[in-house]
Design a protein around this nucleic acid. Structure first.
Length: 198
DNA sequence: CAGCAGATTGACT
DNA sequence: GTCAATCTGCTGC
C-alpha cells in the first residue's frame, strides 16, 4: 500500500524517520520497477537544526523545495558526484526532511546491479549515494511528488519494534556543533545492509 | 571571481 | 589512513 499524505505531514520528523524503517522505497522509470526496504534513515529538523540545509530559515534555489508541502522528493548532489535522496515532510514553510541512507534490495535486483557503478559487489545499496544509483534516482527527480507513479513509498507490513532500532548521531555533520550530538540517525539492528559510515 | 568545504565513496598506501 | 571525483553555495577580495 502506497504511503499517503498522513505520515508525511506529521510534525515530528524524528518519529517519521523511525516509521520509515521497514517501508519500501519503489521507483518506476519507463516501466522498470526497482525497490528496496529502508533500513537506515536520518532526520533533519529544518530551521532549528544546524545540520540541515534549511538551518536558520536559509533559502537557496536548491533548498527552496524543502519549504513546500510534505510528500515530495528532495534530491541533491553532494561532493559533486553523489545524489542523495530525501523525503520532505511537515507542512508548507516548515522545511523538515528525512534522508534515506540505506535500503535492502527487493524488486528488480538485476536492474539495480546493472545501474550500480559497483559492478555487482554485494552491498550496492548500503549508503545514501549508492541506493540512488541502484534505484535510478538523480537530481533531475528532485521535487517529484511521492504520491505519483515514478517514486513512492510502500507499506508492506514490515514493522520493527523499538529495541530493533539503533539511534545514534548523524554522519558527516561534525560542523553542526551541539546538534551533531543528537541521535537522529536510525538503523536496523543486525541488518547487513546498513551503511558502513562511522 | 577565486577559494573552500560539504548529509560520500572506492581505490590505494 | 589518505586521496580524488568536481556540484552547489557561501565567504572574501
Amino acid at each position: 500500500m502506497k504511503l499517503g499524505y498522513d505520515l508525511y505531514h506529521l510534525d515530528n520528523v524524528e518519529f517519521i524517520a523511525q516509521k520509515l524503517l521497514g517501508k519500501y522505497l519503489v521507483t518506476n522509470f519507463s516501466n522498470v520497477i526497482t525497490s528496496g526496504k529502508i533500513v537506515e534513515t536520518e532526520a533533519y529538523a529544518g530551521i532549528t537544526d544546524k545540520a540541515s540545509h534549511a538551518y536558520n530559515a536559509k533559502r537557496t534555489n536548491r533548498t527552496e523545495l524543502m519549504y513546500k508541502d510534505g510528500g515530495i522528493a528532495y534530491v541533491y548532489l553532494i561532493y559533486g558526484i553523489y545524489s542523495l535522496f530525501n523525503i520532505v515532510t511537515n507542512i508548507k514553510e516548515t522545511p523538515h526532511a528525512v534522508l534515506v541512507r540505506a535500503i535492502e534490495p527487493e524488486d528488480g535486483i538485476e536492474t539495480m546491479q546493472k545501474r550500480s557503478a559497483l559492478n555487482g559487489k554485494r552491498y550496492f545499496t548500503s549508503g545514501p549515494g549508492l541506493l540512488t544509483q541502484a534505484l535510478g534516482i538523480s537530481t533531475k527527480h528532485t521535487g517529484i511528488s511521492l504520491l505519483e507513479n515514478q517514486i513512492w513509498l510502500e507499506n508492506r507490513n514490515v514493522n520493527f519494534s523499538k529495541h530493533e532500532i539503533i539511534s545514534s548521531p548523524r554522519v558527516g555533520v561534525a560542523y553542526a556543533g551541539e546538534d551533531a550530538l543528537l541521535n537522529r540517525r536510525y538503523r536496523i539492528k543486525n541488518n547487513p545492509w546498513v551503511s558502513k559510515a562511522k
